[in-house]
Design a protein around this nucleic acid. Structure first.
Lengths: 244, 244
DNA sequence: ATTTGTTTATTTGTAGGACAAATTGATTAA
DNA sequence: TTAATCAATTTGTCCTACAAATAAACAAAT
């Protein structure tokens, strides 16, 4: 059974390409909000595809809140800033400055999550963290398992914050960064990266165990920023002093 | 020309309902990650719709990263926590406790945005804020325009943070809350709500103008939490003391 | 016995036709 | 002028057909 990771070079389906095209047209403003799109029939003709393909593409845009459709009347663009979803472009994350901004956001969210978790995490939560820590420093420091344990550690802290939305947002941001992490670890000696990461996680664990809210915030923020540097991100200027 | 706001009671399209159904099945784990979904033909038969409808639904799930499809092999579920998008359920926001958690998240993000903006906002940014403020306290304090100016005020501050992701996330959260705001303002005397909101915004504006980072954080956090209370949200316990 | 190649059935991808349902604008009637 | 009706347009759904990719079974060769 193949894994979905092997999607490289695979040409995307027609409907996906049409959806991406129209999505860009709307987000860029070339198709103004409230203006009517060409009819499905015309779009199909112009793009050289069948109406089925166009409808599958519009189905995606409708789900994203980029268009609304009225039977008999047509399809109309909506203002992109009122979109129903957040959808980060994985391509733009290739740029180091973008990655730095994303780590800044992650630092904000997870620092707060750690602070909240310090006063709320219970024995079960601490046990989950301890197990994740074991998996990271255990003999099998294979890349895959190591990264998975890393994510689980952070996810459990966000869960302990008691705020479901913080959990949702931090999980999403961490997941978007994940792929980049793999690349970063490949360019550096794996042992050093893992050692640093583990020791920083241990500091976070200790702070949470002791219920030290201020310390938990401090070490979490430092950990996120340093992991950003390890991932090759260019942090915003005002953060440069915080990773020493 | 009708506005998209009039979507109440309008039965959703078949493809949307099928997509929602399958999305819940996957998010709840009833369809396990990596497991194969029924064939499009079977799904169409089971649900009593055409294969076209099923394909439009799967098109949405694929865009969200909930499934991946391999021609000739089938459609397979993916772990929901690795979804490509954040999509908040507007229904669950009806509950006051959920709304409180969302305001807590908003407070975290916008507090930080205000702190960053204090050291970075320029004359143009301040002018945008001033105009938005004018629109809020002007003679036309109609609900619509007032709320729009409110959102623009906050959006400009996030923009001034210099971090595109902070802007994306705060805009999204504020937009999700917006509809709820309308309801809240209807249940209270509009003048009182507007007066409080305007004065709080003025405090934020002054702090930003003076470049006072600490004060900007403080007044922004207080403003978000108080607006949450005005919207009828039940804030988490630990925030109760901060709205006085 | 293992590998390699071939065939066959299954499944998704795309195209196109057909008609229903809703909207819009023009025309007609009161 | 207003209301009612009609016709054209557009989206919603269903259907058939075939191409493309996959996977499993089978046969053949080493």
């Amino acid at each position: 059974m193949k894994k979905p990771a092997q999607f490289i070079g695979q040409p995307e389906s027609l409907s996906t390409r049409v959806a991406d095209h129209l999505s860009r047209e709307i987000r860029s403003g070339r198709i103004a909000p409230a203006s009517r799109l060409p009819t499905e029939h015309d779009l199909a003709n112009d793009l050289g595809v069948s109406r089925n393909v166009v409808r599958e593409a519009l189905s995606q845009l409708r789900a994203d809140g980029l268009v609304y459709v009225r039977q008999g009347a047509g399809t109309f663009a909506l203002p992109p800033e009122e979109s129903k979803v957040i959808r980060l472009d994985p391509l733009s994350l290739g740029e180091a400055s973008d990655l730095g901004q994303l780590f800044e956001l992650r630092a904000i969210l997870e620092t707060e999550a750690a602070g909240l978790a310090a006063t709320r995490i219970g024995p079960q939560g601490l046990e989950v963290l301890r197990l994740a820590l074991e998996r990271m420093r255990g003999p099998e420091r294979k890349r895959d398992d190591s990264v998975a344990a890393d994510l689980e550690f952070h996810r459990e802290i966000s869960r302990a914050s008691g705020n479901a939305y913080i959990l949702t947002f931090t999980t999403y941001v961490a997941g978007q960064i994940k792929d980049t992490i793999y690349l970063a670890r490949r360019s550096q000696p794996i042992d050093i990266v893992v050692d640093e990461t583990v020791s920083e996680h241990e500091a976070i664990f200790t702070a949470l165990k002791d219920g030290d809210e201020v310390l938990a915030r401090q070490v979490m923020r430092r950990h996120i920023l340093r992991s950003g540097v390890r991932a090759g991100a260019e942090l915003p200027d005002h953060l440069n002093g915080e990773t020493k």
